[in-house]
Simulated assay, not measured.
Amino acid sequence: MGIDLPLLWAIIIGFGLMMYVIMDGFDLGIGILFPFVSTREDRDTMVNTVAPVWDGNETWLAFGGAALLAVFPLAYSVILSALYLPLILMLAGLIWRGVAFEFRFKADEAHRPFWDKAFAWGSYIATVSQGVALGAFINGFEVRERAYAGGLFDWLTPFSLFAGVGLLVSYALLGTTWLVMKTEGALQQRMRKLGQPITIALLVAIAIVSIWTPYAHAEVAGRWFSLPNLLFFAPVPVLVLLATCALLKTLGGDSHAAPFVLALLLLFLGYTGLAISLWPNIIPPSVSIWDAAAPPQSMGFTLVGALFIIPFILAYTAWSYYVFRGKVRAGEGYH
């Protein structure tokens, strides 16, 4: 029995995208939280918590895009053609916030507020663009003769816009819980208080999406409520409620790492729900991973490279987070 290369690559790309959501999510979340923190000292502390790792977090985004091109070229051509505008906005936001990240430390007092706003706006634009693209992906694409046949603005729907807002809330929660773990004193307490309404807002967003998605897409409803998928999906809503209650409790207590871990659990549960909803299609609503796959020789060749490079990415990522572990104090950095 041979290796199912499309399935293996779908798992690898899915893992890479999940790593990006986790690692760049709290990074973008810090920019999203900037308007809620007014003092320069607190803003500097917030940025310092991610300064050593923020650029490495986007490695997984580049990996996912390159892997999609190499192994699922049909999906790459259709998805990028359909989502050209939101993806361009996402890249512009990431570039803008990256420039602002560096310049805000070097700017004088007169120009510092401009770069703070640029950092925040870049984070908002990149996050909402990602959420809109995700919502449009769930809605599906019109494909004829192995090419995108839809319009330039087909991605712009009420559902995709709501998905953009939902991802904004998700990243804000990752940002608050990251800062609870990495800071102390008044800033940490502010993040604890801010994290509670954000958690409730995320629960509401998850509930709305969970109702809206099967209502708008009969094929998704069929996957959710048919066996054996129902057996896999049934525990997810219960786990979401339990994780939310635990997160609210830890935010109101004195735990440091637990809120961040629980926020990651909430995002992972949402990710599994998305996987169940779309599986096995990589171009919703009807093009599967096997239909969009490259020739086996290409997939096998690139798999060798991926299995070689992924351990190195994981190793240097783990090492960088280990080196810069601990709390960040205002004006002092790590300790």
Rank of each mutant, 00 (worst) to 15 (best):
I3E: 12
L156P: 00
G93N: 09
N139H: 12
N281F: 09
I13M: 03
I289E: 01
F34Q: 13
A107F: 05
V328I: 12
L94M: 15
A318I: 07
G135T: 07
L303D: 11
F268S: 15
M191L: 02
F15Q: 00
D24L: 07
V261A: 11
K249S: 14
G331A: 08
K182F: 00
V323D: 04
A163K: 07
W60F: 02
G175Y: 07
W224I: 11
G122W: 08
A205N: 12
K249T: 10
I30D: 07
A149W: 11
F233P: 00
L173S: 10
C245R: 15
A221I: 02
A234E: 08
G131F: 09
P285K: 06
D291H: 09
T213I: 10
V204I: 15
L174Y: 15
Y148A: 01
T317S: 13
I198A: 04
Q130R: 01
Y171T: 10
G98A: 11
P235R: 10
A172Y: 02
L203M: 15
A110T: 12
F301D: 01
M23V: 13
L203G: 13
V53T: 14
T176P: 00
G56R: 09
L91T: 14
P285G: 07
V287A: 06
E102K: 11
T199P: 04
T302V: 14
A257L: 11
L74I: 07
A82Q: 04
I11Q: 05
